[in-house]
């Protein structure tokens, strides 16, 4: 009898735990976002206006986001995947079709970001910020030409061993492909083999792989060059004036992060309110002033910091080639993953 009773107690205990999942109720919103990508000011404003309690967790790469979702992690309402990841999430059925194009503030979206390759007509997503992925160099350490990927792959002696790379399979491999003059989403084995060899050879020059810390590692001086996104780079320069953003002649990746609602979200209405809220030009401008990238909605100019109008990081010189890179085919993804694992071991 004792035995049965304690069995029962254990079962009850286990049962109680399974019920205690993430909190959802009227007035909640769980955001899953990149680190340091949404100012507290906006969260507070949204909470106050709509009486919604906001919680936020962070991830450090599109792949990490995908892995968490595929692992069956539920409970997040909105996320901020990059362009190609939106395409993958739609394909995998991981997004809720919330039709933000019917929201009131949808009218502010820059028309050139409506029929985007990853979400034609914006049935799932709205723009959050867009920018470029490049790298910065501390000009106090190295005074030579920085507008070439050579700085990363065959660095001068001053920079060798002082380079931080983003922990992002696509950004690193695309950079390698550009340096070698090969096309993106490449499944040509010969060319991928060259990329593999290039990365393996360059690894000895690299200090670390870190995305969240891409700014700090440059500011602290641990790294003298490092891959970084333009807005994050601008914030780095604010803390260390000798850092300079590079516009490599080989070209660079442009990206757009987008607000989406995850499949099975518990707070869809609040999520839509949040989407609408973030499309409001003033709020989009507040976000832009914080993150220092570029908004995808129009009418933000009156609210923007003056500095953003002239900053080198968000105002590329003429003739720089920037491209959005759509998701590759499954077989290419597998090859990329293999090259990536090979690089990190």
């Amino acid at each position: 009898m004792y035995f049965r009773r304690s069995l029962f107690a254990a079962a009850l205990f286990a049962g109680a735990l399974t019920l205690g999942g993430p909190a959802w109720a009227e007035g909640k919103l769980n955001i899953y976002n990149w680190f340091d990508y949404l100012p507290q000011e906006l969260i507070d404003k949204f909470s106050k206006e709509h009486g919604v309690e906001v919680t936020m967790d962070t991830y450090d790469s599109n792949e990490a986001l995908l892995a968490r979702l595929k692992a069956g992690v539920t409970g997040y309402d909105v996320g901020v995947p990059g362009d190609y990841m939106v395409a993958i999430l739609i394909k995998e059925g991981l997004l809720e079709k919330v039709q933000p194009n019917k929201l009131e503030n949808y009218k502010h979206i820059d028309p050139k970001f409506v029929d985007v390759y990853f979400d034609k007509g914006r049935e799932y997503s709205v723009p959050y910020q867009w920018g470029t992925t490049g790298f910065m160099v501390d000009t106090a350490t190295y005074g030579g030409d920085i507008d070439t990927l050579k700085v990363i792959f065959e660095p001068p002696a001053e920079l060798s061993g002082k380079i931080n790379m983003l922990k992002d399979v696509n950004d690193v491999i695309n950079m390698g492909l550009r340096y070698l003059g090969h096309s993106r989403c490449n499944n040509n084995p010969e060319q991928l083999k060259e990329v593999n060899a290039l990365l393996q050879g360059a690894k000895k020059h690299w200090l670390s792989f870190n995305s969240d810390g891409a700014k700090e590692v440059l500011v602290s001086g641990d790294a003298a060059a490092g891959m970084i996104w333009n807005g994050f780079g601008m914030r780095a320069r604010a803390e260390k004036g000798t850092l300079k953003y590079s516009y490599p002649k080989e070209g660079m990746t442009a990206w757009m992060d987008n607000l989406v609602v995850f499949k099975g979200a518990q707070n869809v209405e609040n999520a839509k309110k949040f989407m609408n809220f973030m499309m409001e030009p003033e709020n989009a401008a507040t976000l832009t002033n914080f993150a220092r990238y570029t908004a995808g909605v129009m009418g933000t100019e009156p609210f923007l910091d003056d500095e953003l109008k002239t900053a080198y990081e968000v105002n590329p010189p003429e003739g720089v080639s920037m491209e959005f890179v759509p998701p590759c085919e499954d077989d290419v993804i597998r090859l990329y993953d293999r090259i990536w694992t090979n690089l990190l071991k």
């Binding site: 990490a64 922990k167 200090l207 792989f209 990190l344």
Partner: peptide, 16 residues
């Protein structure tokens, strides 16, 4: 994050 050990290799397979 540059030189993996077994623990990181395992973690990586369940993450990125």
């Amino acid at each position: 994050g540059k030189n993996l050990m077994i623990g990181n290799l395992i973690a990586m397979q369940f993450q990125a």
